[in-house]
Write a protein that binds this DNA or RNA. Structure first.
Length: 580
RNA sequence: GGUGCGUUAGCGAAGUUGGUUAUCGUGCCUCCCUGUCACGGAGGAGAUCACGGGUUCGAGUCCCGUACGCACCGCCA
């Protein structure tokens, strides 16, 4: 046995005990004939003291050496309040080097100077640091809570295949060439969607899985190519049942990890979320909802507004209180550039202070329209109004992005707040410019709203579904839907998506067939674990909560993956790499 | 696919209108030190300035390209 205690557990009450500790040398302080070593393991740090007669033992010991130490627990005269073990030290009698270490390329401490790419290359060193290690521990704690709560409610965990079948709708698949079937490919699952629905048909009425998912799409600060979902599906259930179950899980997680009990789960329809927040994942930790002020400017002499409306566009407005002094001309130049990212042409603003207007459109707008705006928005001194006149979709999204950015910069967001919202009744379809047709907004197994069944084929733009998201602090935490559970309806949706009978048979044949053998009504969700842990641990970087993450270009800097493979391997798979 | 920013000792950064020995902090090595806990003190080593090309008498600095990293838009059923 290399140790009988961890480096995080000894306290004053252990004084006098003879102990054996093992760990990494986090810091060596040599004061001449006395040497202090901070010994670190997963559980914490304990100071080891080598007095005059023992200091030679660690003469050649350096940072990050792995050592085993025996000694006696002793109470310190000057305790170190920064350490949980700070009231004691271990006075060493022996020291055995279990492993030596080269000088590390980065400082291993809570505050490291290393940039992210270096930390990814030496991820095993980065994981020794508390900020990363603690998040891995939190992640384990959360999945443990989730499993317990779901098990209490009779859900069972079932594993579904990683080697799966490519699906045409949605994200690009990661493909795995088959050796036994020349020219054929497995696909890694984007989610266990079809398998879990088949489990429902198989009578496993309450299923969950901590499921790894893969999507070959470009990355973001909150998106990795492989990620983990808490995947849940339940039969004989609808929105109310699944919302209740998810809320129960979230309440348990927040109570047991953060001590937070007063969570609420308001519901917002998708169209309202877009209207008020310009996003289907609104950050509702703060207000500043957007308003539609189009009607005030229909006959405006300000041609920019009037022409936008004439061309079918709208004018969205957003108010920030007491912000006149905080938002400079320069800031609005910056915001003008910012909204161009979202294809908006410009952002107009009016400041109302000391009962007078000023700002970019102050001269362009006639007095009566400014007064009307003031009444409509109930403006008070100090208010700043921002407006975007554009096509509806652009004005909403661009001003919604401004809402979030300015709120952050003005400090309107309470970082200690956790604001959930269910976003409901998503569109059934969205138009894909790229493909020139309507595609599923969620996925093709999503049920339409009862009242929209007759719009499935003929009025796709106005057809809404029983899909929902749970949003937390502006992140999409989960997605789900009530599923279609009869083959006629399913066939109708495939038809609406423009899939031919042959495509349906090839891609979904087994799935469709299953629905002919008695499918229960069912619904479910997939909760993004990484985003949940990000929010719980207060980081905006998904890489912080993944043990071995990939870069923004989906590269593993540590393992150097993806990599080329031997010709033999290609030959086995009957694959040839094109040289162009 | 697109936009922006970045790349200088092991690590993190500075480097002015282009100018001759590239600076600072930290880490590393050696020596001194019995109460430190970011120990302290003295000394030392350590750089093809990402790569390729160009402009120039002269490039870390200016220009073009490439690679890599980060963020964002598109994309992510």
């Amino acid at each position: 046995m290399n140790r009988d205690h961890t480096c995080g557990e000894l306290r004053k009450s252990d004084a006098g005990k003879h102990v054996k500790l093992a760990g990494w040398v986090a810091k060596r302080r040599n004061l001449g004939s006395i040497v202090f070593i901070d010994l670190r393991d997963r559980y914490g740090i304990t100071q080891i003291t080598f007095d005059e007669s023992h200091s030679d033992l660690v003469k050649d010991v350096r940072n990050e050496y792995v050592i085993e130490v025996e000694g006696t627990v002793s109470v310190k005269e000057n305790p170190n309040p920064k350490l949980a073990t700070g009231e004691i030290e271990v006075v060493a009698e022996s020291c055995k080097v279990l492993s030596s270490a080269k000088t590390t390329p980065m400082i291993i401490a809570d505050e490291t100077d290393a940039l992210e790419d270096l930390r990814l290359k030496y991820r095993y060193l980065d994981i020794r640091r508390n900020p990363i290690k603690d998040k891995l521990i939190l992640r384990d704690k959360v999945t443990t809570i989730v499993r317990r709560v779901l098990h209490e409610d009779d859900f069972i965990e079932v594993e579904t295949p990683i080697l799966s079948k490519s699906t045409p709708e949605g994200a690009r698949d990661y493909l795995v060439p088959s050796r036994l079937y020349k020219g054929r490919f497995y696909a890694l699952p984007q989610s266990p969607q079809q398998y879990k629905q088949l489990l429902m048909i198989g009578g496993i009425d309450r299923y969950f899985q901590i499921a790894r998912c893969f999507r070959d799409e470009d990355l973001r600060a909150d998106r990795q190519p492989e990620f983990t979902q808490i995947d849940i599906e339940m039969s004989f259930a609808d929105e109310e049942d699944i919302f209740a179950e998810v809320e129960k899980v979230m309440k348990a997680v927040f109570k047991e990890t953060k001590g937070i009990e007063d969570l609420s789960f308001p519901r917002i329809k998708y169209v309202d979320a877009m209207d008020k927040y310009g996003s289907d994942k609104p950050d509702v930790r703060f207000g500043n909802e957007m308003c539609d002020v189009t009607s005030l400017f229909e006959n405006s002499s300000f041609s920019v507004f009037a022409n936008t409306i004439k061309d079918g566009g709208i004018i969205k407005a957003l108010v920030f209180h007491n912000a006149c002094d905080k938002l400079s001309r320069k800031k609005f130049d910056e915001l003008t550039e910012f909204v161009k990212i979202y294809k908006a042409k410009a952002i107009a603003y009016l400041k109302y202070d000391k009962n007078e207007f000023s700002g970019s459109v102050n001269n362009a707008l006639p007095e009566n329209e400014k007064e009307a705006l003031k009444d409509f928005l109930k403006l008070e001194n100090g208010d700043v109004v921002m407006m975007i006149a554009d096509k509806k979709a652009i004005a909403q999204v661009a001003l919604g992005a401004v809402r979030k950015k300015v709120a952050e910069e003005l400090g309107l967001i309470d970082k200690n707040k956790y604001a959930f919202a269910w976003i409901t009744e998503f569109p059934m379809y969205e138009y894909s410019e790229e493909e020139g047709r309507y595609v599923s907004a969620h996925h093709p197994f999503t049920a339409p709203r009862d009242e929209d069944v007759d719009k499935l084929i003929d009025d796709k733009a106005n057809c809404y579904s029983r899909a929902y998201d749970l949003v937390l602090n502006g992140y999409e935490l989960l997605s789900g839907s009530v599923r279609i559970h009869n083959s006629e309806m399913q066939a109708k949706v495939f038809d609406a998506l423009g899939l031919t009978k042959e495509q349906i048979k090839n891609k979904f044949g087994f799935f469709i067939e299953a629905f002919d053998y008695g499918a229960p009504p069912h619904c479910g969700v997939g909760i993004g674990i990484e985003r949940l842990i990000m929010i719980l641990s207060g980081t905006d970087n998904i890489k912080d909560v993944v043990a071995f993450p990939k870069t923004a270009t989906a590269y593993d800097l540590m393992a150097d993956a993806p990599s080329t493979v031997d010709q033999d391997q290609l030959d086995f798979l009957s694959l040839q790499i094109r040289k162009d």
